[in-house]
Design a protein around this nucleic acid. Sequence first.
DNA 1: TATAATATTGAATGTAAGTTCAATGAATCA
DNA 2: TGATTCATTGAACTTACATTCAATATTATA
Lengths: 199, 199
Amino acid sequence: MSIRDEQREQRRQLIFDKAIELFAKRGYANTKIGDIAKAADMSVGLMFHYFESKEKLFEELVRYGVQAADNTPREMNFENPLDYFEGFLKMLFHYAKEQPQIMYMFVIMGQLQRGEGIPEHILEIARGADQISQSAEIIEAGQQYGYFREGDPYLLSFTFWSSVQGVMEQLAVHPEMLESDTLPETDWLIGILSKERKQ
Amino acid sequence: MSIRDEQREQRRQLIFDKAIELFAKRGYANTKIGDIAKAADMSVGLMFHYFESKEKLFEELVRYGVQAADNTPREMNFENPLDYFEGFLKMLFHYAKEQPQIMYMFVIMGQLQRGEGIPEHILEIARGADQISQSAEIIEAGQQYGYFREGDPYLLSFTFWSSVQGVMEQLAVHPEMLESDTLPETDWLIGILSKERKQ
DNA sequence: TATAATATTGAATGTAAGTTCAATGAATCA
DNA sequence: TGATTCATTGAACTTACATTCAATATTATA
C-alpha cells in the first residue's frame, strides 16, 4: 500500500474514532459534522472527501459495530453459561479503558433502538444483532442446569442487557471513572442472572 | 376558573404529555416541533401560542421532572433502607403502566446527563436532582447494618441507577411490554445492592 | 346582537447545519 | 522539472426546521 493510501486510511480512521466518541456521547442528531471535523482537526469540507455524508459515516460505523458484536461471542470459550456473560462483561470493562471505541460502539448500538431520527435502512442493519434473543437462548439452556435464576429467559436477558446498556451509557459520559478504574464489579450485574451468589 | 382557562390548561397538558413521550422516545434534538404538533393534533403555529419555544417547553418539562424526583422520596416510608429502593422500583413499575409520563420523565432526566445539545441553563436545573449521590448516602448508612453489599457506596449507587435507567429506556421503546405487564422483577435489580438474596 | 378576547391556521422568515464546489497547495510519478 | 493526482480549505448552496405573523374562526361578555 502506498504512502498516500496509508495516510488516507489513517485519516479515515481518525474521523471514524472521533465520530464514534461524539455519536456515543451526544447521540446522532445532536452531533454536528462540524463537531467531528473540529475534533479531528480538519475542515468540514475535508470530511466529505473521506465520507460521502453524515449518514454514510454513521452507517459504516453501525456496520462495524454489528460485525464486532457478531464476532465477539465466537472468540470466547466458556465452561458454564454464566461465564459467557461474565466473560463478556470483563472484556467490556477491560477494553473500555484502552479502547473506549468499543464501549462507545456499545452505547451507539443501544441508542439505535430508540432512533426514529435515524434512517430506516440503518436501523435494519442494526437489527441484525439481536443480543437479547440470542442471550435468552443461552439463559434458557442454563436454567435447566440451575445456573440461572428462574423466570422468563427473554425478560431476564432484557433486564441484564438493559442494565449493561445503562451502565455503559453513564460511563460514556464519565470518562474520569474509566481513567481512575472506578468500575462496577462484574458480579453486581451478573447477579441479575445468576441463581446463587458467588462464594 | 373559566371554561377558556380550563381548555387552555387542557391544551397545554396535552402538548406537555405528547412532548414527554416524544422527547423520551427520540431525544431532544431528534424531536421536531412538528412531530409534537402532529401528535397533539394541532398546527405548528398553535404550539407557539401555548409554549414560547421548544426550549421553554423542554425546560418546563425538566422542572416538572426535578420536582417530582425531589418529592417522591419524602412520600415514602420504609423500615430498612433496602425497602427504599425496592419501594421506588415498585412504584416506578406500577405507575409505568397507568401513567407512562412518569417513566418517560425518568428517561428524559437520564438523557439530560448526556446532553451537549441541550442549553446549559437547562442542564443546571437538572443537576438539582443528584439521585446517585443521595442514594449513595443511604447505601453507606445501610452497609453498616449489613443490608447492603460491600463496596464503594457511590459506585454501587451509580451501578444501580444506571441499570434502572437502562431498563426504563428500553421499556420506553417497548410499550408492548408495559401493556402485557411483562416487567422485570424488582428483586433482579435490587440484587445489585443487596447483601443477601431474598428468601 | 355587537364587541372584545382568544384560538387556530398556514404561509413567510430566519437560521443552523449538511452538502457542493471551485480554487489552492502538496505529494507522486514520468 | 512538468504533469497528474490527491489533500485541503472556505465560501456558496440547500434544506430542514424553529419561530413569527397576518388573517380567520370561535368563544365569551356586555
